[in-house]
């Protein structure tokens, strides 16, 4: 069963087109990483799925219903980000108690356990926490709510490396015990890559790629060789990334299946083949300019 499905989803804010004609589905009980640079439209997409924002056009279905202003979707979904607000007069433990009233599957034991582990003070107030502590607290809410659809929008803002690692470990272990559909957005892939099942690449409001993360490493390869050889070989290929190496050499990233065919025809002579790291590939697929930052310096 698909938990989320979008058909031709477009969202505009005034004249700005934040999301452009996005079509995809997300299956039940999978962990999906929504990856894209800042300003790609990740938060907008997630808020439409959560039912906070309305699609300008296209169809969105969450649990087979239109999520906008939908109580059923709201009751089965939680949206965690660093903009979460809580009443200022409530202590952290009072907020936990309130959350418990709202969510049927709430796990207070888990919440208390994580509270102790991260040494949060139950009598503290949310607005007095540091940025990292706020993120940690929000994360605890997100995990303990045990919602069938759990959305984390850049959840680790301000957390230090150790806490981030603990967070992803806690997320995975809780997911193993209570499988559910989880979406985590991040502008970096490498820290979440291992726990993901799927990856959804978004840039400039458009879907670039949606694939099991284990296929991502095999999706593309890099070729390095003399520029004239590379240029001739890849003339009619989709090039994800290209840079010059020294004066005469060129480095290109292309699809693996295309590369294999080319190599069969042209032979390996003078060409080196490298794997492409998943997070590098994400950067290539979502970057504005093919040549990367070097293109700014290399124009003559």
């Amino acid at each position: 069963m698909d938990v989320i499905s979008c058909q031709g989803l477009t969202k505009t804010f005034g004249r700005v087109r934040a999301l452009n004609n996005i079509t995809f589905t997300i299956g039940q009980n999978r962990i999906t990483g929504l990856i894209g640079p800042n300003g790609a439209g990740k938060t907008t997409l997630l808020k439409i799925i959560a039912g906070f924002l309305r699609a300008s056009s296209g169809e969105v279905r969450v649990f087979s219903e239109d999520p906008f202003n939908n109580l059923k979707v709201a009751a089965n979904m939680i949206f965690i980000d660093d903009q979460m607000r809580f009443p200022q007069s409530l202590t952290l433990s009072e907020i936990l108690a309130s959350a418990a009233a709202f969510y049927e599957n709430w796990d207070m034991e888990l919440a208390r356990g994580l509270f102790d582990y991260f040494s949060l003070d139950p009598e503290q107030y949310h607005h007095k926490l540091s940025k990292g502590m706020k993120s940690t607290f929000n994360m605890i809410i997100g995990l303990a709510a045990r919602c069938p659809l759990t959305i984390f929008d850049e959840p680790t803002t301000g957390m230090d490396a150790g806490v981030r690692k603990d967070f992803y470990r806690a997320l995975l272990r809780d997911y193993l015990q209570n499988p559910r559909t989880i979406i985590i957005s991040s502008h970096l892939l490498n820290e979440i890559e291992d726990i993901l099942e799927d990856i959804f690449l978004l840039s400039e409001g458009e879907k670039r790629l949606q694939t099991p993360v284990s296929d991502l490493k095999e999706f593309a390869v890099a070729l390095r060789g003399r520029r004239e050889v590379i240029d001739k070989l890849t003339a009619d290929q989709e090039i994800y990334y290209q840079k010059s190496v020294g004066k005469d050499y060129s480095y290109v990233v292309i699809r693996r299946d295309a590369a294999e065919e080319l190599l069969k025809k042209a032979g390996r002579d003078g060409l080196e083949v490298f794997p492409v790291k998943a997070d590098d590939l994400c950067v290539y697929l979502t970057s504005r300019k093919r040549g990367g930052i070097d293109s700014v310096f290399d124009r003559n």
Partner: peptide, 11 residues
């Protein structure tokens, strides 16, 4: 450990 998942609630 199972993959049955969490059932939907009807609010």
């Amino acid at each position: 450990m199972s993959l049955t998942g969490i059932s939907l609630t009807e609010p």
